[in-house]
Design a protein around this nucleic acid. Structure first.
Lengths: 334, 334
DNA sequence: ACCCGTTACGTAAACGTTTACGTTCCTTAT
DNA sequence: ATAAGGAACGTAAACGTTTACGTAACGGGT
């Protein structure tokens, strides 16, 4: 059904080579034949077959994106950034998620290999050693967004979580809070967990506040884990005046739990989130939070990747600036 | 660098045909050669080239997904549903967004055509006639999720927005509300706007409540448009006791505006949302809302598409059930 | 001894492009 | 007049698979 350049060549009375040249604007033909070929192509409803082109050019003009779960708005922003620049370069993005706990990651990589993607972006998924092997065996440029690995040379782009957490906690201290809880971080997560906890601890230490490990409630960044943390604080009868959360969702969990018990935020308890996801501006009260420029991270990551693909250069890691977005969930103590 | 089946054939001392047969488990070879071929393939680090396969099989084992903007969690759920079932079938999904106002939709379709996708899923984007032409010219199965077109025969999968809106408003009426506002819907949106407004109106009419058009504040489903609607209600000094919103985000906008003016929800004003997006359970107070089963819609849509691709059957449209998720943003009047 | 069927392969064409190389013809400089 | 060079093509190989078809070997039934 679909017509090919052979059909065009036959009808237009030229060779396939000429058709190809015309279609790709390569020059080496005169205007008459150009018009003729173009006309025939249109008449036949020709559409090029990218797979055939990929085969001979050994480049699929496609990049792969692997992420943990597509479900949160968090990743939506990053993807949008990626897709926007890929589109500009005429590249397509093929998307896969790595399953919960990265269970599908090996298969994902394999799939990307079979599709012959020209580059790979890995978002937020933790790469264990075998996965890293697979990744390298693909032998294409790649970049990690919002992740790192043990390998020093693996290019990444992310914010400095420890410093960001430090900033947030210092902000609380500057507002005269002295008993500050932490909620929602998973200490075993070397990417988004431990560094934020360390930043929290360091900020306290640097300001002469002694660290009480009971005030650190571990979690998995979820809304639920925030709620549970608040419950734990209450059961402990902890005298906290503020709590720093490892995610906005956890912060909303804290607020939600407070709401159920008629604890007013920020009157009775100050809350700071992390991510500056869309919800943070919509919550009651609007949430003061640490911003990760997600869209920009996607954009920057993809730009770097494109550069590496096109110019065969290597990619340099980048730590991008975080920012504290001040809204109304923090009270200044006297 | 990458090895091919020719390499394997040479090393293993068989023909490429046999290698292909072994690799695809087609039978017609004895165990010894199978082991040999497999061993050589592993040794050479062979990885099949999907593009070459696509070319000869005339099937890319790929489906395309087009959506308006990737950025909201709304679409994340749908995509996850899609990707989950595509993965099961061994299909990849290639993703593109249609730009704001669908500005990029023609190009997107074209791209999907060139990639020779086996099927297409279009999420939430409104298809004008030329776009519909392009879509049909691709000559592959497709399904619309959360959209419809004028064409009766275009298969879609969505909830009945009018009935869903009706349900929500009836719920308010059953709770003795009589002066009910509506916010956030765009009346010119024939998919998600007008039907919800109609459902709202119909519910009022059916219960003998006269419709006051001033109580319908148009918007674009956003948080901002919710805030503006609330502001308008206040300026009008409208005596509403409840407001039905065309989206959760708009509902949060209403709540946020109330918060700023010390109006308590649901004590002073009842609010109902639409979507049951993640935020609805996190808001203060938790939001009573109309649920669209997004993940299921993605899953069902992709399943139908797969079926159509594999069995060459046509796709039947499906209206899937909505549900009212009751939380705490509605007050029962006496 | 002959035929038939099956198993286990190999041969080669085909998929739709791109592209290195060749060819023809025309122009221009020497 | 001739060489040189460029413009405008055409030829055919190549990309890495799949697959229709052919074939050789073997076993068993008559």
């Amino acid at each position: 059904m679909a017509s090919t350049i052979k059909d065009i060549a036959r009808v237009a009375g030229v060779s396939t080579a000429t058709v190809s040249r015309v279609l790709n604007h390569l020059g080496g033909y005169n205007e008459d034949t150009e018009k003729k070929v173009m006309a025939v192509a249109k008449a036949l409803g020709y559409r090029k077959n990218e797979n055939a082109r990929s085969l001979v050019q050994k480049s699929s003009k496609t990049i792969g994106v692997i992420m943990p779960e597509v479900t949160t708005a968090f990743y939506g922003d990053i993807i949008k950034g990626i897709e926007d620049v890929a589109y500009e370069y005429g590249y397509s993005v093929i998307l896969t998620h790595a399953g919960s706990q990265g269970s599908r990651i090996q298969e994902s990589m394999n799939l990307m290999g079979e599709r012959r993607v020209d580059g790979l972006i890995i978002v937020s998924v933790e790469l264990h050693e075998p996965a890293m092997e697979s990744l390298l065996s693909l032998d294409v440029p790649y970049i990690l967004i919002s992740t790192k690995t043990k390998r020093e040379d693996a290019p990444y782009i992310k914010v400095d979580d420890e410093r960001a957490a430090y900033t947030a906690v210092k902000y609380l201290i500057d507002h005269h809070h002295r008993t500050i809880g932490m909620a929602g971080a998973n200490p075993e997560d070397p990417i988004a967990g431990a560094p934020r906890i360390n930043g929290y601890i360091q900020a306290l230490l640097d300001h002469g506040i002694k660290v009480d490990l009971n005030l650190i409630k571990a979690g998995d960044f979820s809304f639920e884990s925030g709620k549970q943390a608040m419950q734990a604080f209450l059961e402990d009868q902890a005298k906290i005046t503020a709590v720093f959360c490892a995610s906005d969702e956890a912060a909303l969990g804290i607020i939600s739990a407070c709401f159920e018990r008629q604890i007013s935020v920020p009157e009775d308890l100050t809350v700071v989130g992390y991510d500056n996801s869309k919800v943070s501006s919509m919550s009651i009260p609007p949430l003061t939070t640490v911003a990760q420029p997600l869209y920009e991270m996607g954009k920057a990551g993809c730009s770097k990747l494109m550069d590496a693909i096109i110019h065969h250069t290597s990619i340099e890691s980048q730590v991008i600036a975080h920012e504290l977005v001040v809204r109304q969930s923090v009270k200044k103590l006297s």
